[in-house]
Every structure is written in structure tokens, then in C-alpha cells.
């Protein structure tokens, strides 16, 4: 794997809600090498999108720093800042919200090309737009140039969003999967397309999803990070995290997931939580935030001490007092 592309150092993000402060992301440290596929999974509200937005520079950190190619994104000079802005692109996966409805596909893609000076002249721009549409499997491209977003299916619109993100030749794409927006039959072909971008152009991807099976499929040789209430509970090689989950939360998640196979899903061993209540970020449990629900709860240490993320088995890092 390549040089560190993105580094998070003790990144925290708070929000003020009802005159109280919540920690949406709490002390996350993480290095993403160039060309890596990293999937972030976890339940709703655990901070995945907030993390993605901070990496994309769409949201400032409240504490800690984010480095792009070794430079702090908050203090970098103009030229570096421009490279970073273009280098890291976020693709909103909601195909209904993200494209301007009154613009033709050609214009949607041509605008950033021209604006950032990636192409000069009408003919070159047209050629590059065609190329990009072909890259995202919208072929033959000429069928799409003059269409408006509403004339495309949801999956096709997402491809257009990706093509638009690719105009500026990014080295890293953040794809946030809005809950089940995409149809299963289209989802895989979209992910295959991201996979190709990585293989052929070395584009790294941060993929945010609720679906661990999908995360394993997509990350395959990359990593999966499991978040719980703003913290990383476990992060490691995708296949190992699924085959050998070490954090009790990861274990519970994997045991709870229904699978598209009646034999397997009906014979799965379940791990029961101690409590079904999801704690509010306004009243975060002390110590390990998972302790009130944790099936492996070990008493005082879990209640009092925040477990640090540290090296564990299978090449993973795990934040649990019981994992050595």
C-alpha cells in the first residue's frame, strides 16, 4: 500500500444541541494510505457521515487535526489547499438530491472541467465528458449528453454524480450510502465501478454504509472500521473483521445481521445485548460507551475507563479492555 494520503489525529467533532454539547465524533485517529478502500460501518448516528464530511473538508474539526499528504488541512497554504479540495471528493449517494434538475448531463460534467481548467475548448471538453461517462458505464455516452437528471434512473443518476466527482481527477472519493437508497441489482455494479477506479487509477475510497456484508464485499483487500457512538470500536482487514470480530459490539452486530440465505440466517448463533436502549449522545455512558449493553461487560474497568484503540489479533486494532 502507498504513502499515507489522509491522516486523522485525535479528531473530535462536537455539536451544540439544545444548549448542550454532544460529541458526534470522539477522538478518532486513523491513517488511510493512498489507494486504500476503507468502509466505515455502524449504527445510525454513530458519526460516520460527520467523519466523512470532516475528511472532505466540508466540516471543521472541533479538536485534533486532519492531514492530507502530510499537511494539516486547516492551516495549509492556498496551492496545497486547492490540491486537497480537488483531491478529495465526496459523492452524495442520494441520487434525487444531488444533481441540478435544470442542467443537462453534459453541462453538469462540463462545468467543473472548465471551471478548474482541466480541459480547454469545447471539443476537448466534449471528448473528456464522453470519456468520463464511459468510465462510469453510461454507454454509449452520446445517449446521455443531452438528457436531464429526471430522465435517468436512480442508478444512472448516481453514476453521473460519480462522473462529476471524477472530473477533477481526485485521489480519494468518499461515498456515503444513504440508507438503502440504491437497489440491490444496481448497487453491486456501482461498487464494481468504484473497484475499477481504484484498480485502474489508484483512487482510494471511503465507503460509508450500514451493511457489513456489503462492506466486506467492497473492501475485500481493504479495511473495515466499526464505529460506536462517535468512536472507533474496531478497525482491521475487511475479511478478518468479519471472520474474527474481536470487539463485543462487532460480534453482536455480525450475529444480528439477517442474511439473504434462509438456511444460514435461521441457524445463526445470536449474541444478546444486555440492553436494547441506545444511549443518547447527550448522556454518554462513562468508561466504555458500550458497557451498558455489552454482553461481555467486565465490571468496574468497563464503567470507569475509556478503552484505547490498540493492536489486537488478526491485524486489527480494537478498543475493548477484554481484548489483549
Amino acid at each position: 500500500m502507498g504513502e499515507p494520503l489522509i491522516t486523522l489525529e485525535h479528531v473530535t467533532r462536537t455539536f451544540d444541541v439544545k444548549r448542550q454539547t454532544i460529541k458526534a465524533v470522539d477522538d478518532i485517529s486513523l491513517t488511510i494510505p493512498e489507494g486504500e478502500v476503507l468502509c466505515l460501518v455502524g449504527e445510525s448516528g454513530c458519526g460516520k457521515t460527520t467523519t466523512g464530511k470532516m475528511i472532505a473538508g466540508l466540516l471543521a474539526t472541533s479538536a485534533g487535526r486532519i492531514l492530507y499528504r502530510g499537511q494539516d488541512i486547516a492551516t495549509m497554504n492556498r496551492a496545497d489547499r486547492r490540491r486537497y479540495r480537488l483531491g478529495v471528493q465526496m459523492v452524495h449517494q442520494d441520487p434525487y438530491a444531488s444533481l441540478n434538475p435544470v442542467q443537462m448531463i453534459y453541462n453538469i460534467i462540463a462545468a467543473p472541467l472548465q471551471h478548474h481548467g482541466f480541459t480547454r475548448g469545447e471539443a476537448a471538453t466534449r471528448e473528456r465528458v464522453r470519456e468520463l461517462l464511459t468510465t462510469v458505464d453510461l454507454t454509449p455516452p452520446d445517449d446521455y449528453l443531452e438528457k436531464y437528471p429526471h430522465q435517468l434512473s436512480g442508478g444512472q443518476r448516481q453514476r453521473v454524480s460519480v462522473a462529476r466527482a471524477l472530473t477533477v481527477r481526485p485521489s480519494f472519493i468518499i461515498a456515503d450510502e444513504a440508507v438503502s437508497m440504491v437497489d440491490v441489482s444496481i448497487r453491486i455494479s456501482l461498487l464494481k465501478m468504484f473497484g475499477r477506479l481504484k484498480d485502474e487509477m489508484g483512487v482510494g475510497v471511503l465507503f460509508i454504509t450500514h451493511d457489513l456484508a456489503l462492506a466486506k464485499y467492497f473492501a475485500w483487500e481493504g479495511r473495515i472500521g466499526v464505529m460506536y457512538l462517535g468512536r472507533l470500536a474496531e478497525i482491521g482487514p475487511a475479511q478478518q473483521v468479519v471472520a474474527h470480530p474481536q470487539h463485543p459490539y462487532t460480534q453482536v452486530l455480525l450475529s444480528a445481521i439477517p442474511e439473504a440465505d434462509p438456511d444460514r440466517t435461521r441457524s445463526k448463533q445470536r449474541i444478546e445485548l444486555r440492553s436494547m436502549d441506545v444511549p443518547s449522545l447527550l448522556r454518554l455512558p462513562s468508561g466504555c460507551a458500550f458497557h451498558p449493553r455489552c454482553p461481555a461487560f467486565a465490571g468496574e474497568i468497563c464503567e470507569k475507563v475509556v478503552p484505547p484503540l490498540k493492536k489486537a489479533g488478526w491485524g486489527s486494532d480494537v478498543a475493548c479492555h477484554l481484548v489483549k
Binding site: G155, Q156, S185, R187, K192, L214, K216, Y217, E259, D261
Partner: peptide
């Protein structure tokens, strides 16, 4: 087109086209 936790990467396919 639906991955399971145990399925191999090569088992997954996608349906071409759209509805």
C-alpha cells in the same frame, strides 16, 4: 446481487440495465 457475510467476492454478480 446480495452479498452475505460468507459469500466469496467472485460469487456476486449484477443485473445489467435498469428497471
Amino acid at each position: 446481487a446480495v452479498p452475505t457475510l460468507t459469500s466469496d467476492k467472485s460469487e456476486l454478480t449484477s443485473i445489467p440495465g435498469s428497471p
